[in-house]
Amino acid sequence: MGTVLATPETAPNTPPSDEKTIVFDRVSIAFEERAVLDSISFELRRGETKMLLGILGSGKTTILKLALGLIKPDSGDIYVLGEHVNEMSEDQLFELRRKMGMVFQESALFDSLTVRENVAFRLIEEGRPAEEIERRVREALQFVELENTIDQFPGELSGGMKRRVGIARAIIDRPEVLLYDSPTAGLDPVTSTTIIELLVKQRDVYHTSALMTTHRLPDTLMMATHYFNEKENKMLQLPKNNSVDARTTFLLLKDAKVIFDGTVEELAASRDEYIREYFA
């Protein structure tokens, strides 16, 4: 463990615990006879944030949907929070999904509902008391700094704002696992940074385990080299002697296989040509 840490409470160099929140064991899936994932295995430990990288169509979104049990693999085993996802019925999965949150690439907000109803969706469905719902919605919207949009409809929001409402909807019930599907895709660099800041805040303040897909390298590097300072309420760069977050790891997909899974240091040390080129 590092000793001279800028923020002892968030301890960026603390490795994630050994407890596994997600396990993929030789998982394969094909669509229309094309193998999208071919016997891939990886683990996500508690507190870890793993970046899933790969070109468009490499199967990143598919991994997130498999973890949620939205689709079933052709073979292999998937465990989430100790449950055997691919063996569960849809009704059992609804229970498990209450402990998980997903942010969809195009936000997937319900068009016909207001921001309040979107963010509160899960709690309304569970029949929580109205005051609790209102309080939690405001908390979640405060987290993404969008309280003023509470009565608007998704159609009235910009792409970045929709993404933030999507994050608020995913985190409202404090999930143990978060799945982010290309949270910065299609956003300008400034808006992307505000989204990354939210993810870093979620990681460092709530220590949620997360899988995040992306094809934007600057975002992943920013996640690895920054921490959230709660006192100043903003994201700051890690000090030079301690420059990467040990809980942020990388997984690279190519041709339906995992060709790299490890930390930034391991990445930097890699001799593989495709990997060097990908991160060049």
Partner: peptide, 18 residues
């Protein structure tokens, strides 16, 4: 259909609703 192709149906399932 619009809800399907914009992943709103997946989002609903992800939020624990059938």
């Amino acid at each position: 259909g619009t809800m399907k192709v914009t992943e709103q149906i997946d989002a609903m399932r992800a939020l624990g609703t059938d």
